[in-house]
């Protein structure tokens, strides 16, 4: 007799039936996991694969419905208009049915959507985002190609912790109130009048990680002090360096010609993109203002 059987049979016999069930089920360990672990495993998968798990077995049939994640990616066909149109409407339809059939008592915590369709974005996407934002979404990540206008309510979502936007159009005027926001990445944002960064950042007092790239800023007011900022990645002079002077990790691309009359007191890691023709004295000037620097990474590209 094996040790486990021995030790079991020496104990209370009334648990025998449950023990036998355990033995029969022993091989299918994963189905005996509590819902929390199974959902945790599923949280690493794109939603399309999560939904597909419903046909594994009874145990998995409804798990996907309570998962608080929305993670879809549509990969468009640039060269075949008709096929893309058909696939895209399939995609929209499927996501719609996903949203309608999931357990709506479970809020969406993470909403991630990437779409490479170049044929416009129907209102349903705006509806999905508005619904997520009026719930209690914490992570919102959107990658949509040009022409998609972001519903402005996103910028007053009080539960948002992490906001990453790429290739998105924003309206000209909106109020910003993102008290919990820690991560803000803006990449290629368009707005007919330019984006007022000082106004946007004034609504994010708890920001820890900021990335700005590929848009035009028309800052009118003064920048607030972002006292919790730890990491910043600033391209194309989008922000005065003084705003990020307390960070620990900083990424800059070349064009900085600002006179430094302050120190990067906490900076331990600095990454720079330089043009070969640039003068190195500028770099030395920056280095002289980083008393705690430990790591310096320089990428050079030839012009």
């Amino acid at each position: 007799m094996k040790w486990w059987a021995e030790s079991y049979f020496c104990k209370k016999p009334k648990q025998l039936s449950s023990f036998l069930i355990l033995l029969i089920m022993a091989d299918d360990i994963i189905s005996s996991f509590p819902d929390e672990i199974l959902c945790h495993i599923l949280s690493f998968l794109p939603t399309k694969h999560v939904v597909a798990t419903s046909v594994f077995s009874k145990r998995w049939k409804f798990l996907w419905r309570s998962l608080p994640f929305f993670d879809f990616h549509y990969d468009g066909d640039l060269f075949d208009y008709d096929r893309n149109n058909e696939n895209y409407s399939h995609f929209l339809h499927s996501v719609d049915s996903f949203l309608l059939s999931r357990d709506r008592d479970q809020p969406l915590h993470r909403f991630r959507l990437r779409s490479d369709s170049t044929y416009g974005h129907p209102v349903s996407i705006q509806r999905w985002i508005t619904a997520a934002v009026s719930g209690s979404v914490r992570h919102l990540e959107l990658y949509l190609d040009w022409g998609f206008v972001l519903p402005s309510v996103v910028f007053s979502c009080k539960t948002l912790v992490d906001l990453k936007l790429t290739f998105i159009q924003v309206e000209n005027n909106f109020s910003v109130d993102l008290p919990l926001l820690k991560i803000l990445h803006l990449n290629n944002i368009s707005s007919s009048q330019g984006l007022d960064l000082s106004q946007l950042l004034s609504g994010c007092p708890n920001l820890e990680d900021l990335e700005l790239k590929g848009f035009i800023s028309t800052t009118k007011g003064k920048f607030i002090k972002l006292s919790k900022l730890v990491r910043a990645s600033i391209h194309e002079d989008l922000l005065p360096l003084e705003v990020v002077k307390d960070v620990e990790v900083l990424f800059l691309d070349s064009k900085y010609q600002q006179i430094l009359d302050f120190y990067f007191q906490n900076l331990v890691r600095l990454e720079l993109i330089l043009q070969l023709s640039k003068d190195w004295l500028g770099v030395l000037e920056v280095l002289e203002h980083c008393p705690k620097l430990q790591t310096l990474l320089i990428c050079i590209y030839k012009v």
């Binding site: 091989d27 299918d28 994963i30 189905s31 046909v55 594994f56 077995s57 009874k58 998995w60």
Partner: peptide
């Protein structure tokens, strides 16, 4: 394949 790998019952 999944049912094979994890020994899930085909009970749907």
């Amino acid at each position: 394949e999944i049912r094979d790998i994890f020994h899930l019952p085909d009970d749907l």
